[in-house]
Design a protein around this nucleic acid. Structure first.
Lengths: 346, 346
DNA sequence: TTGTAAGCGTTATCAA
DNA sequence: TTGATAACGCTTACAA
């Protein structure tokens, strides 16, 4: 049951190792008849080339890596899942790492990947990632950027149209008769700017004034419980001041998820009094009470596409002449009960 | 910037390759002075041994693998996270694979791992996994079982005390005045038996009769939406027939998560009319409406421990004389609003 | 204390 | 069309 090697096959066939190697690689130098014999025997013995011998010789590993900030983030886990699928169907091994949003750790990880002779790297950089270092790595090993693509690096990038997601969600709230909209933002988060911009544009398109006070900024550094508490306090304060049909747009996963529970605690009915929609990739949206309308990011697709682009870079020899593409995928709005009742006064 | 090799270091130092190798491995054969020089130069040039050369020679890869059914299952994702942490802190690379609950695919994956000279495998086998094959693999490569440990394989096993989780949850429901308890089971699921047993034991300990009709079995093969629909229909039917303070024990993640939404649709108040607790590792439990009491499995710890046991097996030469351990971790009951109101009639 | 040489499993060059 | 040989980077007897 020990793995059979080229040498052993060669001995059994009374051929040289090199001929067997060529036969298995379907080289034109070898006669059809010999190839057949070799391939049959190899199959019969379930021959698998030894990765290490091969890699040592070729310098390639058939392995790619993905670096995400946190596996525990469901959105990022879905990216990983997509990448995993695509890697395996392209016959690459995938190894994944987590930067935990730490730029120094990220550098370490990249270093270690280089030392492992990884063929390519798919990365969703941490917020304060060093472009210079990414550039340096990119000179040795192809990199593809995913999700967080606002880095000045000459490579393929796959992101999400955050502006559009927020625009559509806002437009939907307006359609449902909610002109007073509270926006929940994570402070200093990369996505905040675009999503806020999309929201503003939607207001403008509907001749509604943007009110700065309607934006709630939550400190995303806080531990989850404190974060939720702080959100609750601010939300309660704001809601007291507002009148008319209210909508809430959650611009991050955690904020969106937390708000239903908070509103329920405050005795506010959703969607009758307040309609809620927000960015979230949680599978639980359907099971929430009420079922939550969400802006879903195409995470799986991003992961898949990222790997495909990466493989493209790896396998195309002249990668320095390749023109790089930036792809922006559309988020999908999934409407559920939390936004689908018109206000009584409508 | 290309990675420096032993040979190059040797040339610079005017030493032989083997001396350099020994110096870097801190061999006693080499003089302290030489070691110092070598190690300094190596550090200065940021020397990293080439994994492939090393592996080819030693037959070891410093890589372990984990096979889980689905990454998209939050519980299993947490196992992966724990394994990831432990692998990296033990200086092993981790590669992960998904069996998708398919025994044939699992065999394929195991095969491919063997061919890659993986040092060890951590696996949560799919339901119909072949013990014989696992045994065969285990002869070549150490395997550790995790979560699904009811396989007759002589190795370390780390699991969860499902019986106890269900017992404690049931006891809690009873303490909260709910003597009529509906149990939600996934049909043909591995965990069902133990959890049901725990539930029964708790009833018995409280002199409450177990009523077979109070167990709802849902076909877990169904797509999620159909599954939820089927659960809703059965739940509604049962609830009509019951009276007195009711509790629900969800024995799987999906069922537990879905039930709040269903009850709300049916216009049943939680926890006033029906109290709900269930197995679930979702991070959203806090954000649900009402916040959901859960039986949480120590997934992270399981992943970590699994890797630690595996590393132990790998690094202990005489592993066939090692006595294997089976560890059963306790689930943790987290009480939240969904169970913490006594019924009016209490 | 240091060096030589063989070998791990492949592939690639060149010669037969 | 096939084979001998060297090489990839590393470790390890064994020799010096």
């Amino acid at each position: 049951m020990a793995n059979i090697t080229l040498k052993e096959l060669a001995k059994m066939l009374e051929l040289s190792v090199s001929s067997v190697s060529k036969a298995l690689n379907d080289s034109h130098e070898i006669s059809i008849e010999t190839k057949r014999k070799v391939q049959e025997l190899a199959a019969a013995h379930n021959y698998r080339p030894n990765m290490f011998g091969k890699s040592l010789k070729t310098g390639r590993t058939n392995t790619v890596a993905i670096i995400i900030p946190y596996l525990s983030n469901p959105f990022q886990a879905q990216i990983l899942e997509g990448a995993h699928q695509a890697a395996y169907s392209n016959n690459y091994k995938l190894i994944f790492m987590q930067s935990r949003e730490d730029a120094d750790k990220e550098i370490e990880l990249l270093q270690s990947l280089i030392n492992q002779n990884i063929d390519g790297i798919l990365i969703s950089p941490s917020a304060k990632s060093s472009v210079e270092f990414l550039r340096k790595v990119h000179q040795k090993v192809p990199i593809v950027l995913i999700d967080r693509i606002d880095f000045d690096l000459d490579t393929h990038k796959i992101g999400v149209d955050n502006e559009r997601g927020a625009f559509d969600a806002t437009q939907h709230l307006i359609n449902m008769g909610r002109k007073n909209i509270l926006v929940l933002n994570g402070k200093d988060l990369g996505v905040t700017q675009k999503r806020t911009a999309g929201h503003k544009n939607a207001l403008m398109a509907n001749q509604i004034d943007f009110i700065r006070q309607n934006v709630i900024e939550v400190d995303y550094q806080l531990p989850r419980q404190d974060l939720v508490k702080s959100l609750r306090d601010m939300l309660q304060a704001k809601l007291l001041l507002m009148n008319g049909p209210i909508g809430i747009l959650g611009n991050t996963d955690i904020l969106t998820l937390s708000v239903l529970g908070i509103l329920s605690e405050l005795g506010i009915r959703v969607p009758e009094e307040v309609a809620v929609i927000g960015f979230s990739n949680t599978e639980a949206a359907d099971s929430l009470n009420p079922a939550l309308s969400t802006v879903v990011q195409p995470a799986l697709q991003m992961g898949k596409m990222g790997i495909e682009k990466l493989v493209e870079l790896i396998e195309c020899k002249n990668r320095h002449q390749t023109s790089m593409t930036t792809t922006t995928l559309d988020p999908v709005i999934v409407l559920r009960k939390s936004t689908t009742v018109l206000p009584a006064s409508f």
